Simulated scan of single mutants.
Amino acid sequence: MSNTTLTYYNQNAKAFSDSTLNVDMSALYAEFLPHVAQKGHILDAGCGSARDAVFFKAQGFTVSAFDASPELAELASSYLQQPVAVKTFQELNCVNQYDGIWCCASLLHVPKAELPQVFLNLQNALKPNGVLYVSFKYGESERVHNGREFTDLNENALTHLLSHTQLKVIKQWQSVDQRPERESEVWLNALIKVVHVL
């Protein structure tokens, strides 16, 4: 995440957290959770308000979470009632740890040139049968909007970014933003698994 984007989240942490806490994510949970081992370990990566981590925890999953913004991580820890680490996707360096990794509207702040390595980090962090969920704003550009830097992806760009990994898209679909006044924004969603080459 760029310093510009990080500064934005640190300065607007409370407002951002409040604006996302009550967004209905049930349709996305319904796609992701059937692929996660029962009572498995889910990483909410770039957790923001920790809205999703709180839901997963309530469903009986073990949850870990991190965010690059210290201010957001502090708010998220309070809401989740457990520590939320301050780190970036580039600093994720664990192996075989998670049954599911949830990257909801978080990888979109990683510069496109750094995404191939970040996907390798995520691949390594997953258990053999683990599942990865990602979402990006739909498009093809890298852009700055309202003080934040975004990497937009479409289906082809995402598939291309995974071509050097053992990750394979098992489902991808488009959805519209669930926040009021944002219905015109389209998102690319994908479920991704590790495919082991024999």
Rank of each mutant, 00 (worst) to 15 (best):
S2K: 15
N3V: 10
N3L: 15
T5Y: 08
L6S: 03
T7E: 13
Y8W: 14
Y8Q: 10
Q11R: 15
F16H: 12
F16N: 11
S17C: 13
S17P: 12
T20V: 15
D24F: 02
D24P: 10
M25D: 12
Y29I: 00
A30M: 01
F32W: 06
F32R: 08
F32S: 07
H35M: 05
Q38A: 14
I42C: 02
I42F: 02
I42Q: 04
D44K: 04
D44C: 03
D44Y: 03
G46V: 08
G48Q: 02
R51Q: 03
D52A: 04
D52N: 11
F55I: 12
F55K: 08
A58P: 10
F61R: 02
T62L: 09
V63C: 00
S64H: 07
A65D: 00
A68W: 04
A68V: 10
A68N: 05
L72G: 01
A73R: 02
L75V: 12
S77F: 04
L80N: 04
L80Q: 07
A85G: 00
A85N: 04
K87D: 03
E91R: 01
E91N: 08
C94W: 01
Q97D: 05
I101L: 01
I101W: 00
W102Y: 12
W102L: 06
C103H: 00
A105K: 09
S106P: 06
L107Q: 06
L108F: 05
V110P: 11
P111L: 00
E114T: 07
E114S: 15
L115R: 10
L120Y: 11
L120G: 06
L120H: 15
Q123A: 09
A125W: 02
L126I: 04
P128K: 09
G130C: 01
Y133T: 07
K137G: 09
Y138G: 05
Y138R: 01
E140S: 13
S141M: 11
S141V: 14
E142P: 13
E142S: 13
R143C: 11
E149D: 14
E149M: 10
E149I: 10
T151F: 06
D152K: 02
L153M: 15
N154W: 00
N154P: 02
E155S: 15
E155I: 03
A157M: 13
A157C: 06
L158V: 07
H160R: 12
L161S: 08
L162D: 09
H164A: 12
Q166H: 13
Q166V: 09
K168T: 15
V169N: 02
V169A: 00
Q174M: 08
D177M: 11
Q178N: 10
Q178C: 09
P180I: 01
E181Q: 14
R182W: 09
R182M: 13
E183L: 09
E183N: 11
E183H: 12
E185K: 11
W187H: 06
L191N: 08
L191I: 10
I192P: 07
I192M: 03
K193Q: 14
V194F: 05
V195T: 13
V197Q: 11
